[in-house]
Write a protein that binds this DNA or RNA. Structure first.
Length: 372
DNA sequence: GCCGGAAGAT
DNA sequence: ATCTTCCGGC
């Protein structure tokens, strides 16, 4: 019974992985951590840097400095005292086909995460140059969670994650309530009502991020809930922009990223265009670098759920938006959005159909999405 | 060291 | 499904 390992307790303080993050739903009852979770976990902790660490200058690349020790730790976690690097590396090699990892050829014990297949959520885009402080309980400590080169990738993926869901929501909503988008919807939505989601100026989604609302994705095949988005008028607040270093084409606007180009249409606008409906413009520019190809994903596969607590309109938020923009949202609670989509895709080339998504908690502020 | 097939465990 | 164990081959 006792093998010295830690089974169901989350042995790294602050990395309180929710139960469902440990296993796909196909294996109910199991609480087994996956190896790549474990690797990321070690990489995040300073005390393991002598054992495993990010490779400087190569995003997603890490070096196992002490293969025997990593194997021992993994074996301890899995209650497999006979674990060794040979076995562990076999498990890592199974990730090649899944495109979670690949080997850095010519470098011993060096692997690389395919971060283009891993999507970070709630990663404040304005802080991408620097790793965020992770709030671990009452202690604030620095988390060297990501190598410097990852940040651009993270930016890309953060945008994609936001874009992906919001477009799916737009898609579904349009199909459900096509008449709401007949061009007369200049009404300024105040607050959020059930089934009536976004302030119109936010609806195209790219300007609507999930940061302040703690929106995230949970893989769930059981959720058949209505879509609810806790967005409110503050989301459409347009504040003076900041230009992100190295990303001149992007602007930071309140809590959202926008693209300087206005040429691209959002999905909603494309749909409306296809439907011959009036095409609205958004309050700001439209960020949709991934649009323009492919077709929509099967709408029926999308399930979205948010918690009631996030549904409350917040009249003060308009004034807090600028204060909030440099803060992480505390997402110590499991995310409340479900996105369950069927087909896989290459995020570098297409937006649709979106992937299945698996989620893990990197720290109390940052969640990681992984296409299953 | 690294690779991937095969079979077994959970 | 995700490893774990074993192993022949490079």
């Amino acid at each position: 019974m006792h093998c010295g390992c830690v089974s169901n307790s989350y042995w790294v303080p602050g990395l309180a992985f929710p139960d469902w993050a440990y296993k796909a739903e196909s294996s109910p009852g199991s609480r087994q951590i996956q190896l790549w979770h474990f690797i990321l976990e070690l990489l995040q902790k300073e005390e393991f840097h002598h054992v495993i660490a990010w490779q400087q200058g190569e995003y997603g690349e890490f070096v196992i400095k002490d293969p025997d020790e990593v194997a021992r730790l993994w074996g301890r976690r899995k209650c497999k005292p006979q674990m060794n690097y040979d076995k562990l590396s076999r498990a890592l090699r199974y990730y090649y086909n899944k495109r979670i990892l690949h080997k850095t050829k010519g470098k011993r014990f060096t692997y690389k995460f395919n971060f283009s297949k891993l999507i970070f959520v709630n990663y404040p885009v304005w802080d991408l140059r620097y790793p965020p402080p992770a709030v671990l309980g009452n202690n604030v400590c620095r988390t060297p969670a990501l190598p410097s080169g990852v940040q651009r990738e993270v930016l890309h993926n953060t945008i994609l994650a936001h874009k992906l869901l919001s477009d799916q929501l737009a898609c579904r909503r349009l199909l459900q309530n096509p008449m709401e988008y007949d061009g007369s919807s200049n009404k300024k939505t105040s607050g959020v009502s059930r089934h009536s989601l976004l302030p119109t100026s936010c609806f195209t989604g790219t300007c609507c991020n999930f940061g302040s609302s703690g929106h995230l994705y949970i893989p769930s095949s059981s959720s058949q809930h209505s879509i609810e988005l806790p967005l409110h008028p503050s989301r459409s607040l347009y504040s003076p922009t900041q230009v992100l270093p190295g990303t001149a084409e992007w602007q930071l606007c309140a809590n959202r990223l926008i693209h300087q180009s206005q040429a691209l249409l959002s999905l909603e606008e494309r749909i409306q265009s296809h439907r011959g409906l009036h095409s609205r413009t958004t309050g700001g520019n439209v960020l949709s670098p991934y649009l323009g190809h492919k077709t929509m994903s099967p709408i029926d596969n999308i399930h979205v759920l948010t918690s009631p607590s996030t549904m409350k309109p917040d009249p003060e938020s308009r004034f807090r938006a600028s204060e909030e923009k440099n803060k992480f949202q505390d997402l110590s609670e499991p995310p409340k959005l479900c996105l369950n989509l069927s087909e896989s895709h290459d995020v570098n080339t297409k937006l649709y159909p979106p992937p299945d998504i698996e989620l893990m908690n990197l720290n109390s502020k940052t969640w990681l999405l992984k296409p299953a």
